[in-house]
Design a protein around this nucleic acid. Structure first.
Lengths: 205, 205
DNA sequence: CAAATATAATGAACATTGTTCAATAAAAAT
DNA sequence: ATTTTTATTGAACAATGTTCATTATATTTG
């Protein structure tokens, strides 16, 4: 079985090489500029080869989105040490926002663009494990807050979702450049000040 | 000046006709399917004519986005009668969410897609009057709440932005289909329950 | 009213995209 | 050495946004 194994390994390596080239293009030039031809030429393979290893462009973008979630997860994992759940919750939001700011194209792919979900649909997979895992981290933290007596009168899931929505919304408005242009004193710091206002709300509940 | 006036009117009419065709395609088939060729064929004009009246596709999409804001504004205007600012604030959120649900492609164009902002950039216009107007309605209502003693310890702009972000975020997560797939009991009602949780937070502050 | 000018509309042509697939090359099995 | 299997190729296709010389129409002028 030596040959079959080697071939399998080689296939994995080439697929990884394609993804690496795709990521380089994606990070530096965005989604639209990440074309199959550019990916192929980047690694000196033909267009057709890319389609041997990936079903279509959505497949590649889904793989990229998964990589993004791995990075976000590892950045959130650092906060597992924080014992106080309220403190951890606030820090989670900051880490999340920072990720969105520093990797805006990737964030957009992960949470706004259709491509990754369209790919899941195309292979009849209704689960979105990447999102699920991240949301579970939030839910667990909110649960601990509730157990400690915070957020009186709130249910776990709706509250968790509202928190996710608030942070996601502020990040998205920044990324889609909808803040500058709106009549606001200091657009660049708006997300941070908005998050502080939101934190203040959470603390008072 | 009779002829010049008539010509001006005819030009406006044809431009409106193009926009109307574009809107029909946009509403029924989404952004990508709203192609210049389809728009032209819809009104029995050639492709080139569309480009006489609109600079490019972003120009058309920007015009569509403006129409969306007109509709949203008129739906929000109904609530100007509500005297109690807190009550009006809650209702504004509901109207906003309902608009996003019932016109998701349009909402996405208005608040998420690059096209309208790219168009503004291309004509060196840094103002975004549509968004500004809508945000001002929110800000005014929040201001009245503050004046009545609500939201103690909060600043107007950050709080208003956080509220906008929360509602926008929940709407966007719904539209980008990021809710189903996440491990949640009833995905379809999640936005409504999330907004109730958020409202509860606001009331307690 | 006829000719000249100005305005409007046209659609073929271009570049770029994702995608396919018969043909070729390389590797493995016989 | 031959056959079979596997891997790679890149030309070709359809669809897109966009341009622009050409044609048609309308207006102005002499």
């Amino acid at each position: 079985m030596g040959i079959a194994d080697r071939k399998l390994k080689e296939k994995e390596e080439l697929k990884a090489l394609i993804l690496q080239a795709a990521k380089k293009l994606f990070v530096t030039q965005g989604v639209e500029q990440t074309t199959i031809r550019k990916i192929a030429s980047e690694i000196d393979y033909s267009v057709g080869t890319v389609y041997v290893y990936y079903k279509d462009k959505n497949d590649i973008l889904h793989d990229l989105h998964t990589q993004g979630f791995k990075q976000l997860s590892s950045e959130m994992r650092v906060l597992f040490n924080v014992a106080n759940p309220m403190e951890r919750l606030m820090a989670l939001g900051r880490v999340y926002l920072q990720f969105a700011f520093e990797n805006s194209d990737m964030y957009n792919l992960m949470f706004n663009l259709k491509a990754p979900i369209e790919f899941l649909d195309s292979i009849n997979k209704e689960e979105w494990n990447e999102g699920k895992g991240t949301f579970d981290v939030l839910k667990t933290t909110v649960k601990e807050c509730l157990d400690k007596g915070h957020f009186k009168g709130h249910e776990l899931e709706p509250l968790s979702f509202a928190i996710w929505g608030a942070v996601h919304g502020m990040a998205s408005l920044h990324i889609s450049q909808r803040i500058k242009g709106v009549n606001v004193s200091n657009p660049d710091s708006m997300v941070n000040r908005g998050y502080e206002a939101f934190s203040l709300m959470l603390e008072k509940v």
